[in-house]
Design a protein around this nucleic acid. Structure first.
Lengths: 285, 285
DNA sequence: GTTCCGCATGAATCGATAG
DNA sequence: ACTATCGATTCATGCGGAA
């Protein structure tokens, strides 16, 4: 049981280091879900040094190989990514990445679209505003775990804003103010017909209280965690950033492992996780 | 003037045949915009004989080469396409196509998302409902014609309240605290009624012409025609289907060339175009 | 206890200018 | 010529305090 203890030692912890090295310390086939948003090519230079678009796939691929090894056969990997414009053209590093990962044995199962409702403003002579990002789904096998019922949404006009309205945060915010208000809200939903959502997610980028330069609304990882894991399962984020995926996992009772190479960002993640833990306790969880 | 007459003879006509052959009869650099939805791999078997996904890019590429030749240097190609699921996995023929077209000299300028608001209902064991398609934009040069003002949309209702009460800071330029380089000057928006859209299109799949097996709402090609051409410009659809792109072109006073290989579908297109012409005349155009 | 309203924020991109 | 830095451009959202 050496392997099991090795895993147990890493569980519900965050680690500062290159995920390429850190992941080597994990046993094979132990993770249920990997949700991550790797630093985009050439961006976040301050925090990550900025990998050039031409070398991006090459840089990310060995890390994806380690992810493949640690993921359970029925597990899932979700990669939030978008190619940037280089020289007036969309760069090919994302499609190069897909090709390279398929060579590693990954199945490119699905591509979700995150529609960013409040995208960056701006006007350019030959380009409109960019309002979407890819969430690439990869698997090791055709048959993977998926819990569609966990992400059902009320029928009707709410379908457009399903994630916003379904978020745990909303529940929590209401409950912290008044228990009765919370109960009433829930009762509104009871009895409503629910339908399965689509592969297009409508979410705004969060803009308040972010010390980290990347926007990654907590409802995005949370939605995928609900869709691909059940309570107690293990969620990994090898590019944790400010810890959004980890906090999402905690809030819905999944176990987690978080990794990030940058010390400044790591401290922010630690703070976010600690304050999330505190507010959890306050609410009696 | 031999070339010009060759073009003039083809203008505002539709042709039944393989676009690979038909396009050879057109001169170089004469088309302003190509908007098309090529037959999907392995589907529409009845109409097109069904190209297998593994051979799809190979089949489409020589036709894209002819498109490259006939397109003006400042022109644009828009390809509405989506990879299908083969063996539980998204097939790679679209990214193979992008690679192959870049080898031909195409620039992969942008990728628009068509969000299908009323996607087909249903439930599959390992998959949610598919509610989006790609609209790939390709160009021959970095500088192409684009008329963003033609597709402006009404400003959001946030503006009504926000712009009434201006703080002092709103009148000067405030730069964002993060290193993004972004700033804001709220007073810029006073009096503005319309804003530029994003690269995400929300359109329902209203299929006017039910005899054709592909759904392609007329507002999709029409939007791209407005964005990339002006009145009198020439629009080509080498996979015309039931003629949606052609009808859209007629409705907003662009010239057209439509091609389709399938005789049955071709007759439907002819009918659609004729009745569109009639209703045009009735309206005094 | 709810709604209203002010306001800071964001994985951007291009062209010009400087080294 | 080629690369690095800099300034200009512009929406919609959700938090938190106020009514």
């Amino acid at each position: 049981m050496k392997i099991k203890s090795k895993l147990r030692k890493s569980l519900n912890k965050i680690v500062c280091g290159d995920c390429l090295d850190v992941l080597r310390g994990l046993p094979d086939n132990c993770i249920n879900l990997i949700v991550t948003s790797p630093p985009y090519a050439d961006s976040r230079k301050e925090d990550y040094g900025g990998v050039h678009p031409d070398e991006y796939a090459e840089w990310l691929l060995p890390r994806m190989a380690e992810c493949f090894r640690v993921l359970k056969p029925t597990g899932t990997l979700v990669l939030n990514i978008k190619e940037k414009v280089v020289n007036g053209e969309r760069h090919t590093y994302v499609i190069d990445l897909i090709s390279g990962m398929r060579d590693q044995g990954w199945l490119w199962t699905e591509e979700f679209i995150w529609h960013k409702k409040n995208s960056f403003p701006g006007k350019w002579p030959n380009r409109l505003r960019d309002a979407w990002e890819r969430c690439l789904q990869f698997n090791k096998m055709k048959k993977f775990r998926m819990y569609q019922d966990a992400v059902k949404v009320p029928i009707g006009k709410w379908a457009e804003t399903r994630l916003k309205n379904m978020s745990e945060d909303d529940n929590k915010r209401i409950s912290s103010k008044s228990k009765s208000g919370f109960g009433r809200k829930v009762s509104n939903w009871i009895g409503k017909r629910k339908v399965y959502p689509t592969n297009v997610l409508h979410l705004a980028t969060e803009c308040a209280y972010r010390n980290h330069s990347a926007t990654f609304p907590i409802n995005l990882p949370k939605w995928f965690i609900k869709l691909f894991t059940k309570k107690g399962d293990i969620v990994l984020d090898p590019f944790m950033g400010s810890g959004t995926t980890v906090v999402a996992s905690m809030q819905i009772s999944r176990q987690y492992i978080g990794i990030d190479i940058n010390k400044r960002v790591f401290r922010i993640a630690k703070n976010n996780i600690n304050s999330s833990r505190k507010s959890d306790r306050k609410n009696g969880n």
